[in-house]
């Protein structure tokens, strides 16, 4: 075991898989010698060489197409999109192409591609870098969408994603990259995709969250505890497909729920979770399921982030509405 930050855990997961499977290829803008702008691929170029870990020309659509072509040739591509705000440049490759090949060819071609990309607010990136765009991905059939909240989860989930034969969009919250360390096993281990994780047990309300919001939810749960409320925190970990079983089991236990996302409120993952709860567990509910989300504006950058991003106080406020309904 070693103490690792999330970025180290991600780096380690790629190292493990590059070593284990020679079909794994890591590529993207500045991921080679430079080790990626966040150092996610640090030392991988030196260790595995230019054949396995390489820079691409500056073009996201090119990166997506390259991944698809290499998958057709039997490789297991792990491309990086430098910031997920640039995903629109590669939207066709992801949503229009790789998500559909299995269907279009009746399974003749699999797309074992893992697109890694940093996203998320709180580190003062410039415009169009930090947006939470997982909702766009989650609305696309044929894609799995994974968002880890801890170093341990990040490594196990990334290894699973790389081994998965479907295209996986693996989103890494920038604020979590170096915000804390935890014990992460050396070598290989996997955490199944599509499985949520109860990060804190509770009995009065379920706070369902993912990514950086898991930590805001945990903080909120600590505060609520002081006021006599026991909150359960469910970390979705995979936002598509949803782990309905874990969500419903939690809601049936607590009978109250709120769903938290960093993204704007309109449409999105949280709305989908609320709808699933209403579909399946409405009779268990003591109160409506409410959401905590950002305002429906463009993601503001730099200075404006701090006032715009949802935080634990917003979670407490909404949780109390549901608890006292």
């Amino acid at each position: 075991m070693a103490q690792m930050t999330m970025i180290q855990a991600i780096n380690d997961a790629m190292r493990v898989e590059l070593k284990r499977d020679e079909k794994v290829l890591v590529f993207g803008e500045d991921v080679g010698v430079n080790g990626g702008v966040f150092r996610a691929t640090e030392n991988l170029h030196a260790e595995f060489g230019e054949d396995r870990v390489f820079d691409t020309p500056l073009a996201e659509s090119g990166i997506g197409g390259l991944a698809i072509g290499l998958a057709v040739q039997g490789f297991r591509p792990v491309p990086e999109i430098q910031f997920f705000g640039f995903v629109f440049e590669v939207m066709d490759s992801i949503a229009g192409q790789m998500a559909r090949y299995h269907f279009r060819t009746g399974g003749s071609f699999e797309m074992p591609i893992t697109i890694r990309s940093p996203f998320g607010g709180g580190v003062h990136t410039p415009e169009m870098h930090a947006d939470s765009l997982e909702g766009l991905m989650a609305q696309t059939p044929g894609l799995k969408v994974v968002i880890p909240s801890t170093p341990y989860d990040a490594k196990g989930l990334l290894i699973s994603a790389i081994r998965d034969n479907n295209p996986v969009v693996f989103l890494e919250h920038m604020k979590l990259y170096r915000s804390f360390r935890e014990e992460v096993p050396e070598g290989e281990y996997t955490i199944p995709l599509g499985k949520a994780d109860v990060k804190r047990e509770g009995k009065d309300i379920s706070i369902i969250a993912y990514g950086a919001m898991v930590h805001e939810a945990l903080k909120a749960a600590d505060e609520l505890e002081k006021e006599g409320y026991s909150a359960e925190v469910v970390d979705l970990r995979t936002v598509s497909p949803l782990d309905i079983e874990t969500i419903i089991a939690s809601v049936e236990k607590t009978n109250r729920a709120i769903v938290v996302q960093e993204a704007q409120k309109q449409a999105g993952v949280a709305a989908n979770v609320v709808a699933e709860i209403n579909d399946r567990a409405i009779l268990s509910l003591e109160a409506p399921v409410l959401r905590v989300a950002a305002a429906d504006t463009v993601f503001p950058f730099s200075q404006a982030e701090s006032v715009w991003l949802p935080n634990y106080k917003d979670i407490i406020e909404t949780a109390k509405k549901v608890l006292t309904f």
């Binding site: 409120k265 309109q266 305002a295 429906d296 504006t297 463009v298 503001p300 200075q303 404006a304």
Partner: peptide
Amino acid sequence: KQKVSDLISIMSKELPSNL
């Protein structure tokens, strides 16, 4: 100092109902 309400108000001339 920036406020979320200011950010909302510059989304469009006529705000949609959600905003």
